[in-house]
């Protein structure tokens, strides 16, 4: 790795202030993404600020109203092991457990998880290949290169990368809020607006400004949360990023869907919420596969395949059907 300085933050206000005035400084918590990026020279911060010692940011709070608030420094494994999380929001526990490995989940923080950068092989290559996300203006190697793992929704000619977080997909389905402390104080960003589409500025992954520190993730109680499932499809059985994943939660009236929450992973630069499908699914029977398929198709009119990933458009719809069916078994 390149040489850098390391210091430690003891309170959030100072951390925010330091990063606000220092464009060469990056926060480091678990480090499981940042250190890899630095080794591949896709991130070259001059200074790291260790935020692991910020007080009161590692909690998992099961709120009396049925909601959940998770400190940004809580580790993935602790959140996944929390009985409150598992009982109230099984899809959050599943999204965490299907991610990475046991070792990485012990290290990685919740805030860092949703900050993960894309796994696009061109972006990550040590050799600094043409990539607008890595070097704006250098072009997108994946657009006409190898793009089986890339986006089918919301991509631009400048970038076809996908977001790798599993957790963010579950949070998007639940309309979670990301609590951010910045130079003007604390604010709440809906997770569905936290990650950006690439457009002409793919170097920006999310809505954070310099100095912004994620302090927590807030998940309100949802009636679709208990009958929920996170389904992750990948080439091998474990320890791999999603080819396509779906977070599904439903409220049921008999066998028919009263309301649904759906988001996809592995298909876009951000967790991809299927709002049109959610609307179309109301009143559809879980046992009527054809009706499920046509309701889901409402969200796929805007899907656009790249050279090697057309299969994802069909796969994603099948994954959603399956996720709904499994969620339905949990009522």
């Amino acid at each position: 790795m390149h040489p850098f300085a390391l210091s430690r933050a003891d309170d959030p206000a100072t951390a925010v202030a330091i990063q606000t005035r220092d464009p060469g400084l990056a926060f480091i918590a678990g480090g499981t993404d940042l250190i890899g990026l630095m080794k591949d020279r896709a991130a070259l911060p001059e200074r790291l600020l260790d935020i692991n010692h910020l007080p009161g940011m590692s909690y998992i709070e099961a709120r009396a109203d049925g909601g959940l608030r998770i400190g940004a420094l809580a580790r993935m494994s602790d959140v996944a092991a929390s009985l409150a999380v598992r009982e109230r929001f099984p899809l959050i526990a599943e999204a965490l457990l299907f991610a990475a490995s046991g070792q990485l989940r012990n290290m990685a923080s919740i805030g860092g998880n949703i900050m993960q950068r894309t796994r696009c092989a061109y972006f990550r290559d040590e050799d600094d290949l043409p990539c607008n996300k890595r070097r704006p203006g250098s072009g997108c190697s994946a657009r006409h290169g190898l793009n089986r793992n890339h986006a089918i929704f919301g991509w631009s000619d400048a970038c076809v990368a996908t977001n790798p977080s599993d957790l963010a997909v579950a949070l998007a389905a639940l309309d979670a809020q990301v609590i951010v402390r910045g130079r003007t104080g604390e604010r709440s960003i809906p997770i569905t607006e936290f990650h950006r589409l690439p457009g002409d500025t793919p170097e920006r992954d999310n809505a954070l400004d310099r100095g912004d520190l994620i302090v927590a993730v807030d998940v309100a109680a949802r009636r679709e949360a208990r009958a929920s499932h996170y389904l992750k499809v990948r080439d091998r059985q474990s320890f791999e990023f999603a080819l396509v994943s779906a977070a599904a939660g439903i409220a049921i009236d008999g066998r028919s869907i009263a309301s649904a929450r759906l988001a996809l992973g592995g298909v876009a630069h951000k967790p991809w919420r299927l709002r049109a499908a959610e609307t179309a699914l109301r009143g559809v029977s879980l046992d009527d596969r054809d009706a499920l398929r046509s309701a889901i198709a409402a969200s796929f009119a805007e899907a656009r395949a790249l050279a090697h990933n057309a299969f994802k458009i069909e796969l994603a719809q099948r994954v959603v059907v399956r996720a709904l069916q499994v969620a339905g078994e949990r009522t």
Partner: peptide, 13 residues
């Protein structure tokens, strides 16, 4: 007591 990956951990932390 927890398993972690030492290649993705900075010694100084």
């Amino acid at each position: 007591g927890r398993r972690i990956l030492s290649c993705m951990t900075l010694a100084a932390m």
